[in-house]
């Protein structure tokens, strides 16, 4: 037994109905520090003796490279791009996430379906259509969100990248105000999900007490996991 497989669309035809592992989604604003948080969680869980793995949005380095080549080609439409990302998540789900959950791992997803949904909807695609397209995706047992305002997220982005990403911005504005407007839209889209799913916001990953509380919550959620 274990946890029931819950997908975005009810009763998606998976072979298994239960898994013994724990699925943790790390979601939030672009630039909020999702990858940093996912890696830090992984490190600390391992140091506590839990089997854990971090998964990203791409099934391989090669697919990431090929995607990067197309990413900013304005000829690629939002619908096609969203479906491409959704197919990547479906591959990662099938090839990495589910096998590890079946084997009893804590799987930390650096972006679950929630980030894909928020981005595609903020880009103007129909919310219901986007949700339906992600019907195959596993619902996280716990969502961890790095706290950020749109402005702090922009500051983080600018510290690590040459420029802000036009795909994470509302067009027709200055780079910064476009990015902030887009992230505000994402905040609005995430708000109802925070009420519906087990959700934990991390204010500061450098704060050891805070991280200890998150690990404790994951430990509580993953009670009975093989260590």
């Amino acid at each position: 037994m274990g946890r029931p497989v819950r997908t975005v669309a009810p009763q998606w035809p998976y072979v298994d109905t239960y898994y013994p592992g724990l699925y943790v989604g790390v979601d939030g604003l672009d630039g909020s520090g999702r990858t940093t948080l996912a890696n830090e969680l992984h490190r600390q869980l391992q140091s506590h003796g839990y089997p854990s793995v971090v998964t990203g949005p791409f099934p391989s380095k090669k697919s990431q490279t090929q995607n990067t080549l197309n990413k900013h080609d304005r000829r690629v439409g939002d619908t096609s791009r969203h479906l491409l990302y959704a197919s990547f998540l479906a591959i990662v789900m099938h090839e990495v996430i589910l096998p590890h959950l079946r084997a009893g791992y804590i799987v930390i997803s650096d972006r679950s379906w929630i980030s894909l949904y928020a981005r595609a909807t903020a880009q103007g695609l129909d919310k219901n259509w986007v949700t339906t397209s992600l019907g195959f995706a596993l619902q996280p047992d716990l969502v961890i969100e790095p706290a950020a305002t749109p402005l702090t997220a922009a500051r983080r982005k600018l510290a690590g990248a040459e420029a802000l990403d036009p795909l994470e911005s509302v067009g027709g504005r200055s780079q910064l105000s476009g990015f902030i407007a887009f992230q505000e839209q994402i905040q609005i889209l995430l708000a109802p999900l925070r009420q519906q799913l087990p959700w934990h916001v991390v204010e500061d990953i450098k704060n050891l007490d805070q991280m200890a509380r998150i690990i404790h919550r994951i430990e509580a959620e993953s009670e009975g996991l093989p260590s």
């Binding site: 479906l83 491409l84 959704a86 197919s87 591959i91 789900m93 099938h94």
Partner: peptide, 11 residues
């Protein structure tokens, strides 16, 4: 997987 196959062809 069937879902990934379907989504990639839709893309």
């Amino acid at each position: 997987s069937p879902a990934a196959f379907s989504l990639l062809h839709a893309s």
